[in-house]
Simulated assay, not measured.
Amino acid sequence: MAKRIIIFIGVFFILIGCSSSYQVEEMSVGVAAEKGPILMVGEVTFDETWSVPAGAIGCCWKDSGALSFVYDTPFPNTVVIAWYDLSTELFWVGEAQIDNKTGYEFIQKMKPVIVRSTGEYFDDSTPYLIVGIKRNGLIKVWISNSSSEAIGRQILEIGSGMAQIKELPPEDER
């Protein structure tokens, strides 16, 4: 009996140690698109538990785009995003898998930057989680230590996925 309890406790601690839930105190979440088309982005949902609004996005790939801030949130494993391309009149829905361990490790090692416009040293520990979308349905997820206007910016791709064209929801559900 004692042997079973020891095995159970060992397995329990291994599972806890391999947990993929990494808590982030504060994080900036941005949605970006390739330059050109205007994409109307609805809610961006992470792990089916928390979300951020977006709106009209027309620029810029790997930039922070439309920003929202979240607090005391688990670093996500997935993102689901839906958008409407005004120029092609297509509605897209897609999901991207996120390597949350790599993203969290990046946050732990973030370095300060220099603000390009002022030359000031900026040591802010707020990470930027960026979800990028393209007209062809490609979804990319990056983690960065600043917006694109900084010297010393670090950015790392931590996720990707593809969206599919869907029928628009009925008028009364939009």
Results as ranks from 00 to 15, higher is better:
153 R>S: 01
141 V>Y: 01
86 L>V: 14
13 F>D: 10
67 L>V: 10
67 L>E: 09
157 E>I: 05
159 G>R: 01
84 Y>G: 01
18 C>H: 14
109 K>H: 05
91 F>A: 04
10 G>K: 13
76 P>K: 00
49 T>L: 09
63 D>E: 15
10 G>R: 10
151 I>V: 10
65 G>W: 13
117 S>F: 11
116 R>P: 02
1 M>P: 09
114 I>C: 04
153 R>T: 02
46 F>T: 04
108 Q>E: 09
11 V>K: 10
60 C>W: 10
136 N>F: 05
140 K>P: 10
122 F>T: 14
97 Q>M: 08
116 R>T: 08
89 E>T: 11
37 P>A: 11
169 P>T: 06
63 D>W: 04
73 T>G: 02
53 P>F: 11
132 G>P: 09
44 V>E: 01
114 I>S: 02
16 I>G: 12
152 G>I: 10
74 P>R: 00
105 E>S: 02
37 P>F: 07
82 A>P: 02
33 A>D: 05
6 I>Q: 09
96 A>G: 01
19 S>C: 15
90 L>W: 09
159 G>T: 02
127 P>E: 09
170 P>W: 08
138 L>H: 07
98 I>D: 00
106 F>K: 01
78 T>N: 05
106 F>V: 03
66 A>V: 12
65 G>H: 07
84 Y>K: 06
4 R>S: 14
39 L>T: 08
98 I>K: 00
165 I>T: 09
76 P>D: 00
50 W>A: 09
13 F>R: 12
132 G>S: 08
114 I>E: 00
64 S>N: 14
137 G>K: 07
142 W>C: 04
106 F>Q: 03
17 G>K: 10
129 L>E: 00
33 A>N: 09
96 A>W: 00
78 T>Q: 07
162 M>V: 03
46 F>E: 02
15 L>M: 12
67 L>Q: 06
103 G>H: 01
172 D>K: 15
29 V>W: 07
135 R>P: 10
45 T>G: 06
18 C>I: 14
146 S>F: 03
147 S>Y: 12
2 A>E: 15
147 S>Q: 10
174 R>L: 05
15 L>G: 14
106 F>E: 00
158 I>W: 00
